[in-house]
Design a protein around this nucleic acid. Structure first.
Length: 424
RNA sequence: GUGAGCGUAGCCCAGUGGUCUAAGGCGUCAGGUUGUGGCCCUGAAGAUCGAGGGUUCAAAUCCCUCCGCUCACCCCA
C-alpha cells in the first residue's frame, strides 16, 4: 500500500472546516489591510533560495528539495515564501507601481526535516509582504496585521516579541562583539553552540542549555550596537506599536533563521511550552531585493504556519463554522420513483439547492437512516402515491412534520424554509 | 542528522510464548414484516497482528534488521 510521504498528510474533510475558516480570515484580513493575492510556482530556480535565504543556513544546506529537471535546470520546491514574492516583484516590474506593493499568499512550503508536532515536510503558510517602503510605521502596521490575524481567529493569550538585529552597517560590529564574548568561554558551551559560534553567532543567544544561557546573560546586547538610523527606526516602531496598543515585549535574544532579515524582527508565540512555539514570524529584509538584482528596495513581511494555527485552534477549543450540508435528502421507493427522484434532484440543483440523493436499492428505513447520519434536516420522499398525484412528501427531520407538496412547488418551498432557518 | 517511546480491522484498543481458527467498542452495511430516521436489539462484512529474517515443538507475544508513526534535540511556520 502506498502512503503519503513522510512528513506530509492528507487534509480530510473533518479538518477542512479549520482550513476554510483560517483561509477566510486570511482573505478578509488581506482586504482590510490592502494586500493583493499572489500565487507563485511551487518550484523555482534553486539559486533563488540559496541567494536569498543564505548559503550557510540549514534550510539551504540540508532541507531543500532540490532536483534537476529533464533539461538540466536546477530547481527547488519552495522552502519559504518571501523569496518567490520578491522574484515576482522584480520580474513584473512592480517597482513601477505605487509603493509599497502589498502581496499575500497561501502556499505549500517544503523542507526536508524530521517531522514532529507542528513541523512537516510539506506545510502551508499564510504570509504577506509589503515591499518598497522603509517607514517604521509600516513595520508597526505589518506587526498589527499579524496580531489581528490571530485575534480574528479567536486564538488568545499570545505573546508578541520584537527585536532589532540592525543593518549591514552596524551588525558586523555586534557579531564581532558576540564572538569575542563567547570565544573566551568556549569550554562552557554545548557542542551545538561551538559550531554556531562560527556559523551564526546570533543563535548562541537563544540556546536552551543552562551553561550557554549563563554565558548569554552577560553577553553584549544588540540594542547597544545599533547604528543611529537603526536605533531611531526601532524606537519609532515601538512608538507606533504603543499607539496601536499592541502588547509587545522586546526580546533581545530573538533571532531569525534566515539571513536576509534586517532591523525589525518579530515573532508571535502561543501560551504554554512546546518546541515549535512560533505561530508566525517575520521582519524587515531591506537588502533582499537588491541582492536579487533589483534597485535598493526596503521591505517587510510576515508568515504563519497553517498547521500550527489549526493546532492552536484545537488546543484552545475555538469553535469554527461547520462545512456546508445538503439542503435536502431525497428518498424514493421503487424503480419508477427512482427515475423521478433523479430528475427532481437535477432540477433542484439547477435551482441552487444542495441535494443528497439516496443511492442503490435500500429500504425507506435505510434511506432515512442515511439521511439522519448525513444530518439532513429535510427529506423528500417520493413513492407510487406521490407519482400518481405529481407531489412529494416533505418531511422535517427535526419536528417530524410531513407535508404534501406539488413537485412544481418543491423548489420554492425548500428555499423558503431555508431562509426561515437562516433567519431563525 | 541524534535520542526516546510506539506500530493488532476505517478509527480507539484487549491480548506479553501454547486455550488466538486474535476479543471488545466506535463506525459501515443489513434486518427487527407490508412506505418513515435518531434510542434499543440481532446479524454481517472488515486483521497477510508494520515488513523481512531468526530462536522455539509452538511467536501478535522473545531476538535482529528495515520501514513507518509520535515526541524531543537541531532548525523553523
Amino acid at each position: 500500500m502506498y502512503k503519503a510521504p513522510r512528513g506530509t498528510s492528507d487534509i480530510l474533510s473533518e479538518e477542512q472546516a479549520y482550513w476554510r475558516y483560517i483561509e477566510a480570515k486570511a482573505v478578509d484580513l488581506s482586504r482590510l489591510y490592502g494586500y493583493q493575492r499572489l500565487d507563485t510556482p511551487v518550484f523555482e530556480d534553486a539559486g533563488l533560495f540559496a541567494r536569498s535565504i543564505g548559503d550557510n543556513t540549514d534550510i539551504v544546506t540540508k532541507e531543500m528539495y532540490t532536483f534537476e529537471d529533464r533539461s538540466g535546470n536546477l530547481l527547488a520546491l519552495r522552502p519559504e515564501g518571501t523569496a518567490p514574492v520578491c522574484r515576482a516583484y522584480l520580474e513584473h516590474g512592480m517597482s513601477n507601481l505605487p509603493q509599497p506593493v502589498k502581496l499575500y499568499y497561501l502556499a505549500a512550503i517544503f523542507r526536508y526535516e524530521r517531522p514532529q508536532a507542528g513541523r512537516y515536510r510539506q506545510h502551508y503558510q499564510f504570509g504577506f509582504e509589503a515591499i518598497g517602503e522603509s517607514d517604521p510605521a509600516l513595520d508597526a502596521e505589518v506587526i498589527d496585521t499579524a496580531w489581528q490575524f490571530f485575534g480574528s481567529l479567536g486564538i488568545k493569550q499570545l505573546s508578541l516579541y520584537i527585536n532589532s538585529i540592525g543593518c549591514k552597517g552596524c551588525r558586523p560590529a555586534y557579531l564581532d562583539a558576540l564572538k569575542q564574548h563567547y570565544s573566551t568561554r568556549t569550554s562552557k558551551l554545548c557542542e551545538d553552540c561551538k559550531t554556531r559560534l562560527g556559523k551564526n553567532p546570533l543563535r548562541l543567544l537563544d540556546c536552551k542549555q543552562v551553561s550557554c544561557q549563563d554565558a548569554a546573560v552577560s553577553a553584549p546586547k544588540g540594542a547597544d550596537y545599533l547604528c543611529a538610523e537603526c536605533g531611531a527606526h526601532f524606537a519609532a516602531v515601538q512608538k507606533y506599536l504603543h499607539a496601536l496598543n499592541l502588547p509587545f515585549q522586546i526580546n533581545n535574544r530573538l533571532v531569525r533563521g534566515l539571513d536576509y532579515y534586517t532591523k525589525t524582527v518579530f515573532e508571535i508565540q502561543p501560551p504554554g511550552e512546546g518546541a515549535q512555539s512560533a505561530l508566525g514570524g517575520g521582519g524587515r529584509y531591506d537588502d533582499l531585493i537588491e541582492e536579487l538584482g533589483g534597485n535598493p528596495t526596503p521591505a517587510i513581511g510576515f508568515a504563519s504556519g497553517m498547521e500550527r494555527v489549526v493546532l492552536n485552534l484545537k488546543r484552545q477549543e475555538v469553535s469554527v463554522p461547520g462545512l456546508p450540508k445538503p439542503d435536502v435528502f431525497i428518498a424514493y421507493l421503487g424503480d419508477e420513483a427512482k427515475l423521478e427522484a433523479v430528475k427532481l434532484a437535477s432540477d433542484l440543483r439547477q435551482n441552487g439547492i444542495a441535494v443528497a440523493l439516496a443511492t442503490g436499492v435500500r429500504s425507506l428505513k435505510s434511506q432515512l437512516r442515511q439521511a439522519d447520519s448525513l444530518d439532513n434536516k429535510q427529506v423528500v420522499i417520493i413513492g407510487e402515491e406521490e407519482i400518481k398525484r405529481g407531489t412529494v412528501t416533505l418531511r422535517n427531520m427535526v419536528t417530524k412534520e410531513q407535508q404534501v407538496v406539488s413537485q412544481a412547488m418543491l423548489g420554492e418551498t425548500l428555499k423558503q424554509s431555508h431562509v426561515r432557518e437562516k433567519n431563525g
